[in-house]
């Protein structure tokens, strides 16, 4: 059986390998939620976890949600859904101080063509809100 001239096992293996990065992150999110829950709120009550992900972080949202859903039950958070907000890459040119967003990963200042560009935003993965069912 073949898909796009590649055996299915090859595609599955490729997908498995690529997902491993997100698996580590999914586990870290669930561990962080457990750590952040105030006393008196049981993990089963968590309904949503809001996450911000920098665009530069090479995280595939669909893969992260897929893996989060796959393992959340093992961490005692069976009802938690993951909501991901992607943070666009914002840069500043050190030569002319111009600030600009990147649509493509090309760190060149559109104003002066300078390549000494610092990142202001668009890197990092943070939980910023947890929703839980009321008693």
């Amino acid at each position: 059986m073949k898909v796009s001239d590649k055996p299915v096992w090859h595609l599955l293996f490729q997908r498995y390998c690529l997902l491993m990065h997100e698996l580590y992150i999914a586990e870290s999110i669930l561990n962080s939620v457990l750590d952040l829950l105030p006393a008196g709120i049981t993990p089963e009550r968590v309904t949503k976890v809001h996450l911000s992900v920098g665009q530069l972080d090479a995280v595939v949202s669909e893969s992260l949600i897929f893996l989060f859903d796959a393992i959340k039950g093992t961490k005692g958070l069976p009802h938690a859904q993951l909501a991901i907000e992607t943070i666009a890459v914002l840069c500043q040119c050190k030569t002319c101080a111009h600030q600009f967003n990147l649509d493509l990963p090309i760190f060149i200042c559109p104003q002066c063509n300078g390549s000494d560009v610092i990142l202001l935003q668009g890197r990092g993965i943070s939980i910023y809100r947890i929703e839980a069912k009321d008693d």
Partner: peptide, 14 residues
């Protein structure tokens, strides 16, 4: 209920 936090997911790794 909502719990507002800021937690770097890679905090333990870092």
């Amino acid at each position: 209920m909502e719990i507002n936090v800021v937690r770097d997911v890679l905090e333990e790794s870092n």
